[in-house]
């Protein structure tokens, strides 16, 4: 194992994973470890497959090669009922929030509790209000999802993700769409959830500063490969061009801002097919 994280202490381990969409290879034989009780961040340019990785871990997509195990279970070998039992212990915060539009904020947070427990309604109410208080939106309980801003929806979704007190949470871009104040609050929230509830957290994000502030370990992925990994301070010192470019946000370097295209000048000067 060339990995610096001890595998026996990892809750989730991804081994030699390959995955493609159509002809496009999204992951090419990558291995990642996510240590118990820690916050591990996955960073990388848009479209590298960060969301895809979370869906693979959640068992919604199947790898072409390699294995993913969560708490000792090979996710893609489980029977359906076993997978569902495992998912009850995995919280996931979708990039879009994915709140159920037909019900109020309160009912959304209560949804997993009502589906999976037989708690009396009074207890559910208490739990829901506690979770909403934790994300600072107890006052929004009677709103419908279409009355929320994008940032609020994400926080409600977080309250819902922790409703069943899971062992881990996967955050897909938690910071985008948050104003600086709630961004700061959210950073603290993720940190304290992780410490108080002894959660294992995976954060997928582009926000270098926020993520580096709370992550214990960072993987930088690009074009299907891990191009850098280590503690935040190691990553900042990294000599890899890829990682430097990503951390400093330079538009050009090994990672290109532009989608592959023919030469710009040629493209502008050519008359285009319609007239040619």
């Amino acid at each position: 194992m060339d990995n610096s994280v001890l595998p026996q202490n990892s809750l989730i381990s991804v081994k030699n994973l390959s995955f493609s969409r159509g002809n496009k290879k999204i992951f090419d034989d990558i291995s990642l470890e996510f240590e118990r009780g820690k916050i591990t961040a996955i960073m990388g340019p848009s479209g590298t497959g960060k969301t895809t990785l979370l869906k693979l871990i959640g068992g919604q997509l199947f790898p072409e090669q390699g294995t993913i195990s969560v708490d000792g279970n090979n996710v893609h070998r489980l029977r359906r009922s076993e997978l569902y039992n495992l998912r009850k212990r995995m919280g996931m915060l979708f990039q879009s929030g994915a709140l159920l539009t037909g019900m109020s904020v309160f009912d959304n947070v209560a949804f997993p509790l009502r589906e999976h427990t037989h708690l009396p309604e009074s207890m559910i109410r208490t739990l829901v209000l506690m979770k909403l208080q934790a994300v600072g939106l107890r006052g929004a309980r009677d709103l419908m999802p279409n009355e929320l801003s994008g940032g609020m929806a994400r926080r409600i979704a977080l309250a819902r993700a922790i409703a069943l007190d899971p062992m881990m949470i996967m955050y897909d871009e938690p910071f985008t769409g948050q104003d600086p104040i709630s961004k700061g609050a959210l950073v603290q929230l993720i940190k304290s959830l992780n410490n108080i509830l002894k959660l294992t957290s995976i954060i997928v994000s582009h926000d270098v500063l926020e993520t580096a502030a709370i992550a214990d370990y960072i993987y930088v992925i690009s074009e299907g490969k891990v191009v850098g990994q280590g503690r935040p301070e190691d990553i900042e010192q990294s000599e890899s061009d890829w990682v430097q470019q990503f951390m400093t946000g330079a538009a050009d370097g090994p990672v290109h801002f532009h989608y592959p295209a023919k030469d710009y000048v040629d493209d502008l000067l050519s008359t285009g097919k319609r007239y040619g």
Binding site: Q60, R87, M92, F94, T101, P112, H116
Partner: peptide, 10 residues
């Protein structure tokens, strides 16, 4: 993604 969200909530 409400349907996938639901799947992830088991």
């Amino acid at each position: 993604e409400q349907l996938s969200g639901m799947e992830m909530m088991a």
